[in-house]
């Protein structure tokens, strides 16, 4: 069947030329551009994962520093304060993320509350020192880094003064709310 089309030598040459022409038409500068583009994309994807992993040259996560987070735990039972010991580790409630270790210098004072004086004005008063509720001012030594002045606890949890965080001890037997008062690098 095919032989019939190649029957005449004169008709074979134009056919071959036509094929060549169609091959030339099939691969142009745009095709080359597309191939280059695809190669660049593939290289970029590989580079994204290779160069930015933990050992990669583009890996730029800042180093963690020791950061002192001052907290105020208000109006808790004095028995809670009795459990506070130096180097006690606190965790963020609901996670296994360590917040930090309790610094030795924490203070326990009778908890404040408001009452009326004889003129009907609100005044600060304090619970009894014997068995009354207490306020605990403490410092937790945490790890994290600052980015644009904002502190990221363990590199992931944003922490600023004014926030209230719920923390637990390692046994999960104590859970308290702590107001963050201050955050500063440990010198």
């Amino acid at each position: 069947m095919r032989k019939r089309s190649y029957g005449a030598g004169a008709s074979r040459e134009p056919a071959a030329n036509e094929n060549k022409a169609s091959i030339k038409k099939g691969f142009g500068v745009l095709d080359a551009f597309a191939i280059v583009l695809i190669i660049v994309c593939l290289i970029s994807v590989v580079a994204r994962y290779v160069l930015t992993d933990e050992k990669g040259i583009l890996h730029n996560e800042p180093e963690f520093s020791d950061v002192a987070v001052s907290i105020l735990i208000s109006d808790v039972m004095y028995t809670t304060a009795d459990n506070f010991t130096e180097d006690m580790v606190f965790y963020l409630d609901g996670s296994a993320d360590v917040v930090g270790k309790l610094d030795a210098n924490f203070t326990v004072t009778p908890a404040q509350y408001y009452t009326e004086n004889e003129n009907g004005e609100l005044v600060l008063a304090y619970h009894s020192e014997e068995g009354g509720n207490v306020d605990i001012r403490a410092t937790l030594i945490t790890e994290g880094y600052f980015s644009d002045g904002t502190y990221y606890l363990n590199g992931k949890t944003l922490l600023t003064s004014g926030m209230t965080i719920t923390i637990t001890d390692s046994g999960g037997t104590m859970k308290v709310s702590a107001l963050v008062l201050d955050i500063a690098l440990v010198s």
Partner: peptide
């Protein structure tokens, strides 16, 4: 809201 150092 927050600034870089304070939540409110």
């Amino acid at each position: 809201l927050r600034t870089s150092k304070f939540y409110f």
